[in-house]
Write a protein that binds this DNA or RNA. Structure first.
Lengths: 110, 110
DNA sequence: CTAATACACAACCTAGCAGTTGTGTAGAGT
DNA sequence: ACTCTACACAACTGCTAGGTTGTGTATTAG
């Protein structure tokens, strides 16, 4: 069943919050980095050239939103993707953005 | 072709910005209201119980992002959806949220 | 021309969030 | 016990953006 309209206010807040969680470049980069497999905070901080605290903070946000899973391994913590729909979301937006850009360039050249 | 990884920084910013644009309850409500057809600023302000200025501001953001079209009709301005992918995005998130909630309630009852 | 309508723009206040810095904590090695 | 490593938590700063208020602009009616 499709979602009823209008959306109830609490669900509305949740949906908006979910979009805002993904609406940060750093967090998208973290999701991209985790796309090919789990990684620890330190690994991600090194790959993305971010501070440990900042990366940990963003990972915490993604974890609390239910997008990532957290697993302790000794002193390390491994994060992994559990909500793969985020990639569908990103590709939908990417596709639409490229469509907009091509339309714009066509409008400029004609 | 799928988007290359890692995403280049400018595209990353655009994608993140697009998510942030949709990541506001008021704007989602505006999109929902426009789902069944175009409407003017005044109509939307009345339907959603918002001030004219605030509604106009949010509509401007959605228009600048290429999600809405703007058409003057006398003293009124009619906005309409041009990017229907926003609804796919919302339904993806809604579906995922409901799945999370059911999983959570199941985990609580067992 | 005057007035009313419908909308957008600008200034302001404020809340929220990203990023940094400092500190606390838990596990592994010596 | 001591130390190092890896991570999280808390406090602080600065910026961004939402909401309100006030004002400007264009169109229509009288």
């Amino acid at each position: 069943m499709p979602v009823e309209h209008p959306l109830p206010e609490p669900l509305l807040e949740l949906v908006a919050y979910r979009f805002r969680v993904i609406g940060e470049p750093m967090r998208i980069r973290l999701l991209e980095a985790l796309r090919h497999g789990p990684a620890t905070v330190g690994q991600l901080a090194e790959i993305l050239s971010g501070t440990q605290q900042n990366v940990s903070k963003h990972l915490g946000v993604l974890h609390q939103a239910g997008i990532l899973s957290r697993q302790k391994q000794g002193t390390s913590v491994r994060y992994a993707i559990v909500d793969t729909t985020v990639f569908e979301l990103c590709e939908l937006v990417c596709g639409r953005l490229r469509q907009q850009l091509t339309e714009l360039s066509e409008a400029l050249t004609t």
